[in-house]
Amino acid sequence: MRQALFSRMILAGVMSLPLLAGAAVPVVEVYKSASCGCCTEWVKHLHKNGIATKVQNVEDTSGYRARFGMPQALGSCHTARVNGYVIEGHVPATEIRRLLAEKPKALGLAVPAMPMGSPGMEGPRSDPYDVLLVQANGRYSTYRHYSAK
């Protein structure tokens, strides 16, 4: 009796392995300048929050923004892609995880410019900023607002 129960538990565990593998957070492909320190700090922020990255140093990130459909007006110093979504700028890891969990119909997320206090832009002050949910037509709405600290 115990052996049959044990065998069923082992079988259930083996059968669930493909499901667990699919639950992992995909790798974020980051396109950034080799000389940009805040981009490197943003990548470190992702790693500290359990998000894997594949970094490619490029001459000009604006071409990647254009290729991926992110409006130049929402641009920042780096562009990324994950699971079909575009991530522009200093988007916090928590919002990337939320995006991947909720799977909204959208182009992706953007934090335009380089607001002080956003991940990778930590310093002596922290300004309020918005994480924008960007649609394929370029329209956007506030996905989350971060207040000054």
Results as ranks from 00 to 15, higher is better:
residue 110 A to E: 03
residue 129 Y to K: 06
residue 113 A to T: 06
residue 107 L to Y: 00
residue 117 G to T: 13
residue 103 K to Q: 15
residue 117 G to H: 13
residue 106 A to F: 07
residue 110 A to T: 07
residue 109 L to M: 05
residue 120 G to I: 03
residue 103 K to W: 09
residue 108 G to W: 03
residue 135 Q to Y: 10
residue 113 A to D: 06
residue 103 K to I: 03
residue 127 D to G: 03
residue 109 L to K: 00
residue 127 D to S: 11
residue 103 K to C: 03
residue 135 Q to C: 09
residue 116 M to N: 09
residue 107 L to N: 12
residue 111 V to Q: 02
residue 113 A to M: 12
residue 113 A to I: 09
residue 103 K to S: 13
residue 126 S to W: 12
residue 133 L to W: 04
residue 117 G to A: 14
residue 105 K to G: 04
residue 126 S to A: 15
residue 115 P to H: 06
residue 110 A to F: 01
residue 128 P to M: 01
residue 104 P to R: 12
residue 104 P to D: 08
residue 128 P to N: 01
residue 106 A to N: 04
residue 109 L to T: 05
residue 111 V to L: 04
residue 107 L to Q: 10
residue 129 Y to C: 10
residue 116 M to Y: 05
residue 124 P to Q: 13
residue 132 L to R: 01
residue 105 K to H: 03
residue 112 P to K: 09
residue 132 L to Q: 05
residue 126 S to T: 15
residue 123 G to F: 04
residue 132 L to A: 02
residue 108 G to V: 13
residue 123 G to Q: 07
residue 128 P to A: 03
residue 128 P to T: 06
residue 106 A to Q: 02
residue 124 P to I: 06
residue 104 P to Q: 10
residue 125 R to T: 08
residue 112 P to D: 03
residue 123 G to H: 10
residue 135 Q to E: 15
residue 120 G to H: 04
residue 131 V to S: 11
residue 131 V to G: 05
residue 117 G to I: 10
residue 133 L to G: 09
residue 107 L to S: 10
residue 122 E to K: 04
residue 103 K to N: 13
residue 106 A to I: 01
residue 125 R to P: 06
residue 107 L to C: 13
residue 104 P to M: 13
residue 109 L to E: 06
residue 116 M to I: 07
residue 114 M to L: 05
residue 106 A to E: 08
residue 128 P to F: 00
residue 120 G to W: 02
residue 135 Q to H: 14
residue 119 P to M: 14
residue 119 P to Y: 15
residue 127 D to C: 00
residue 103 K to F: 08
residue 103 K to H: 14
residue 107 L to R: 00
residue 130 D to F: 04
residue 122 E to Q: 08
residue 119 P to D: 09
residue 121 M to N: 07
residue 103 K to T: 11
residue 135 Q to W: 01
residue 106 A to V: 04
residue 131 V to N: 01
residue 128 P to V: 03
residue 117 G to M: 02
residue 119 P to L: 10
residue 113 A to H: 07
residue 104 P to N: 15
residue 133 L to R: 02
residue 134 V to C: 05
residue 104 P to S: 12
residue 130 D to Q: 13
residue 127 D to K: 12
residue 103 K to Y: 03
residue 118 S to D: 09
residue 112 P to R: 13
residue 120 G to N: 01
residue 126 S to K: 15
residue 106 A to C: 07
residue 121 M to T: 12
residue 108 G to I: 12
residue 106 A to R: 06
residue 132 L to P: 00
residue 131 V to L: 04
residue 116 M to E: 10
residue 116 M to A: 15
residue 112 P to N: 11
residue 110 A to P: 04
residue 134 V to M: 09
